[in-house]
Design a protein around this nucleic acid. Structure first.
Lengths: 214, 214
DNA sequence: CCCCGGTAATTTGTATACAATAACATGAAC
DNA sequence: GTTCATGTTATTGTATACAAATTACCGGGG
């Protein structure tokens, strides 16, 4: 995708992620074209992509809306994510490079230190958390798996989960990441898979408890 | 998607599935527009969709080609399919309706009878096989899971696997479907998941043995 | 013979105009 | 007051023209 449609994609995605375009709100091509400063053509391409990534949904009459979700959707997304990401962890355990493993260890060390020092910098946590999971997915070396996971993890509602952690949950998350590093170091696929399954499912339940979906 | 782009999508997809557009061959918008009898605009939309469904791949210079695969890709696709479809079977076991279960039983009965009577009608088998798996996926009631599976199962190379079965493999497949029906009737998610896992993995190994990828 | 520029040809990207379709509002009939 | 028909408006779908980028080809130089 080239310049204009790429810009439009980033712009519209930003509107959705920031909440400026809330779930369920309609998206018209012309309005978005004005906002992005391009014509409708690249906007249409961006919307197609956002649709395939489940950011937007299309009504039977071809009108587009920001995707919304209910409790059932959320449960479904996390169940799939747990399964796929645990599979990724299992693959990563036997494939991860020494460099990548070191990067995981370093990132998690930084995070643990910040938590221990009682510096609950949420932005830092989100960044480190994201980097951790991305390294694991890359190490799994399965492009289709990566694509599928991206469709789940990039969903705004899923990204929001980690932002809601309290201090105890941050510490728990960092501890689980630490255990994953151990499992990777031991090249133990079964162990890694089990830890990741629990890691994701606990994240889901902590989030559900904290922010019950209407 | 509306008339012209829908037609273009079906037309181009047909070219890929039939082999008229073999893996690796380039796809230019104008040529496809001529073939489909529409302008480039709906062709572009169709190609975007085919790209998101992995039928076509895009080079770094934005040129499109029919997707190709190697042995590693094939193994990856089947590993993912086994995991996802086993999950679908597990969900279906506790959710499937009496009607859907009856449809599975009936379809598999027809198939078993045809095999027993030594009528190896491949087209019939493919149709029944496809219907069986589709009922299971529908019964799983997880739209995201269905989308992910479709991206795998619809791949030409995957669809080809079942077409290569010999008589013994047909019988085996029908028998496994029968066991799945039993597991569903018993509402046994663990059993259904295990049977489906083996079913897909055996299909993969039978195919790999019969048609080693260059 | 190979390599390197430069130009022509091909291909994709974007903008715009117009057509088709769906949503909406208005008003008449019951 | 409700309902249905109809015209109006808004929105999406398609075609086309042109711009930008990439590729291919050709000629000259090393």
């Amino acid at each position: 995708m080239s310049r204009a449609s790429e810009r439009a994609y980033a712009e519209i995605r930003g509107l959705i992620l920031s909440g400026d375009a809330p779930p369920g709100s309609p998206l018209t091509e012309e309005a978005l074209a004005d906002i992005c400063g391009v014509s409708r053509t690249p906007v249409r391409e961006a919307l197609r992509r956002l649709e395939s990534e489940l950011y937007v949904v299309r009504s039977e009459s071809q009108r587009l809306f920001v995707a919304s979700w209910n409790a059932e959707d959320l449960g479904e997304m996390f169940a799939l994510r747990a399964m796929l990401e645990a599979h990724a962890a299992a693959r990563a355990a036997t494939r991860i490079s020494a460099d990548a493993l070191a990067a995981l260890r370093a990132g998690n060390g930084r995070l643990a230190a910040a938590i221990a020092a009682d510096v609950p910098d949420v932005a830092t946590f989100l960044m480190e958390n994201r980097a951790f999971h991305e390294i694991v997915i890359t190490a799994a070396a399965s492009p289709r798996l990566a694509t599928m996971l991206a469709a789940l993890v990039e969903q705004p509602v899923v990204r929001r989960t980690a932002a809601r952690y309290n201090r105890a949950e941050l510490a728990r998350s960092a501890h689980e990441h630490g255990e994953l590093v151990q499992a990777f170091a031991a090249r133990d696929a079964v162990w890694a898979q089990a830890v990741m399954t629990g890691h994701i499912r606990r994240a889901f339940h902590a989030f559900s408890a904290a922010e019950p979906v209407k």
